[in-house]
Write a protein that binds this DNA or RNA. Structure first.
Lengths: 210, 210
DNA sequence: GTCTATACACTGATAGAC
DNA sequence: GTCTATCAGTGTATAGAC
């Protein structure tokens, strides 16, 4: 692991935990096991370092998510399963990733939205709209295979169901009166249940069709 | 409006936007239209001021939410409707409230969880467990009125569906390719759709029963 | 490339006049 | 209660030796 990488890892931890304003260059240097001056040697200043970290994290979140939403090879059924699995895996691995991005996207939207758009454009190369999540939902509603639903409202719901318990971990923990261990358990069991619940909102039967 | 209140409003805006570390006492003073020294006259230091703001905001969020979850006078059907309506109204009014609390709850959980617990204890005086959201779901599943579901997983899902589009506003906006105005529209239409979707996950029919 | 030492700006907080 | 002036502490960033 190069010094450059060690710095990025250390910086990510610090930025995710403290936010840009609360993060301290000294702490990042400590975590990375180097001197504060070396930090400025690799990344000219705090802002540049932050940009690097944030860009990497946005990629880490947006690429898998937007891919699952648009991958033309997936059936509707498979897409739901894949979406649940992908997000669960991602946030089990990176517990603070989502909230960090939500935070910074909210703090300075104009600075980041162009970046996000480029990522979505570059990695969402599927131009067959009928083979996206949205397109499949639209078609299913039109021909009556699915229960009537606004595709975008449904997508937002799936996003919320999959992501919110990770982003709002402490809040949900308290509302459900669970401790850390019980909540971890809860999240692991959630995958199966999520698929069932997502299906029920649109499918006419609880039985899978493919 | 007293100076004290003006400060709290100004401080909330600044803290919500910049976080504790990024917030500047000077900016709070400017927003409140007073001098920086007066800030310290009313609230000894930054930390105290922050605590005041955060406590008020936690109350603003947790009281209505936990009340809807436990109010013994609500039927299951009514509870879903009320939950959707309450959260929608709250976040339309206070767009940054939820994300701010998620942020701070994540940044320093140990400092805030006791506060949250006290609030929940004080305002969740319903000791008839069978008349809570959880209790009603449990009973419905047991006697077959409802589709089989884990009550807590369902509650977490409803929370996510209602709250996530507000907390992750920019993220969802981009994934759905909407601008600010279109997204506002989307959120207004969402109320109706939310009730339908929440019902479908547990009720055997789309028709309301009461 | 990595260190020590230091410059420089900023911020939270206080003293004291009015 | 509200202001001006100012201090002390901290944090980013750089200079320069090795």
């Amino acid at each position: 692991m190069t010094t450059e990488e060690k710095i990025l890892v250390a910086a990510r931890e610090e930025f995710q935990q403290a936010g840009f304003g609360g993060a301290r260059m000294q702490k990042i240097a400590d975590r990375a096991g180097i001197n504060k001056a070396s930090l400025h040697y690799y990344y000219r200043n705090k802002e540049k370092l932050f940009q690097q970290v944030l860009q990497k994290d946005i990629l880490r979140l947006m690429i898998p998510v937007s891919m699952v939403l648009r991958d033309p090879s997936l059936s509707l059924e498979q897409r739901i399963r894949t979406f649940v699995k992908t997000t669960t895996q991602l946030f089990m691995d990176q517990p603070n990733l989502l909230l960090f991005i939500m935070q910074e996207l909210n703090r300075a939207p104009e600075r980041l939205l162009n970046l996000v758009r480029d990522i979505l454009k570059e990695h969402g190369l599927n131009d067959d709209e009928s083979r996206t999540f949205r397109g499949q939902l639209e078609e299913g509603v039109k021909n009556g295979t699915l229960k009537p639903v606004d595709p975008e409202q449904y997508i937002a719901s799936v996003l919320g169901m999959c992501m919110f318990p990770y982003a709002a971990r402490s809040l949900v923990m308290e509302l459900l009166e669970k401790d850390k261990e019980a909540y971890q358990n809860f999240l692991e069991q959630r995958q199966e249940e999520l698929i069932t619940l997502c299906r029920r909102m649109i499918f006419r039967s609880d039985e899978p069709e493919d």
